[in-house]
């Protein structure tokens, strides 16, 4: 089997190598991929949308349909992870570990024993015991607000610098995942519950589709943001820029919430009890 795979892969590589000779050279401005519609985007994009970052303009305006259904795909992926893994029934635990916060003494409570739930002096720790690390805990806690601010900057400054909803959303999701890794899953799901992530992911997509349908209601095509000019009291070109911002906010919300949701389900195998 391995030998057949190796021969097949070598044949595939030979075909790729052979076809690479007829491809345009690297960095050729006259290559077929760099002509036609791309030149129009570069020349007229700024004039038509008032967004200097052409990637954002093409992503949210010229190819708005594509991006909307791309966001739908990741929402579907998040929901698929949820349905594949989420289990509401608790596995009966053999024993649970509690740490006395002041002294660091670990209590092992056997099944049926009285657990110090809601105690200020004890905190529950994961079954796969990891030592308490003050530096990791505090450093992650200090970094998170700044990282989240940066994520918002990446979303809202996507018109003028590299960035946008997808990138900023992923950074925002990563901050919550950083908390979950540096502390534990239970304290993170208290801060950012599963319900919030489910709500934000669908709300983000709703903002995107809602912007599109608002354009439809105002008598233009779906996702033609120039129709928003009457609502926002700006000229049609600026309305496109603002419409792109609305859409990027929706994408950012959806992407960050779905990243967190997928992580919760994968890390705890759907039990939201103990995880990484």
């Amino acid at each position: 089997m391995k030998r057949f795979a190796f021969i097949g892969v070598l044949l595939f590589g030979a075909v790729l190598l052979y076809s690479s000779f007829s491809f345009p050279p690297l960095g050729d401005p006259h290559a077929p991929a760099n002509r036609h519609v791309s030149d129009d985007y570069i020349r007229d994009g700024m004039k038509e949308t008032a967004v200097p970052n052409l990637v954002t303009a093409v992503l949210a305006d010229y190819r708005g349909y594509d991006t909307m259904f791309e966001a739908t795909v990741i929402l579907a992926a998040g929901i698929a992870c949820f349905f594949l893994l989420r289990r509401y029934r608790r596995k009966p635990a053999q024993h649970r570990l509690y740490r006395h916060i002041d002294t660091g003494v670990i209590l092992i409570i056997e099944q049926g024993g009285k657990e110090p739930v809601d105690s200020k002096e004890f905190e529950r720790i994961d079954y796969h015991w990891v030592p308490f690390d003050l530096v990791v805990n505090k450093a992650a806690g200090l970094m998170v607000p700044f990282l989240q601010l940066f994520a918002l900057y990446v979303i809202f400054h996507g018109h003028h610098s590299p960035g946008g909803g997808f990138q900023g959303g992923v950074i925002f999701g990563a901050t919550v995942i950083l908390l979950a890794i540096s502390r534990d899953l239970r304290s993170t799901t208290r801060l950012f519950p599963e319900r919030t992530s489910a709500f934000l992911s669908s709300a983000g997509l709703f903002i995107y589709a809602g912007t599109g349908f608002a354009c439809l209601l105002l008598g233009s095509n779906l996702l033609d943001y120039s129709a928003l000019a009457r609502l926002l009291a700006v000229d049609p070109v600026m309305a496109r820029s603002h419409g792109i911002l609305l859409v990027e906010i929706g994408v950012g919300m959806a992407v960050s919430a779905i990243m967190i949701w997928i992580y919760y389900n994968l890390a705890s195998a759907g039990r939201y009890d103990e995880g990484l």
Binding site: V37, V55, A57, L59, E70, I74
Partner: peptide
């Protein structure tokens, strides 16, 4: 060319 960047931005997320 901005177009491949846009396509791959969404492809990364997918």
């Amino acid at each position: 060319n901005p177009l491949p960047h846009v396509l791959m931005l969404t492809a990364i997320v997918v």
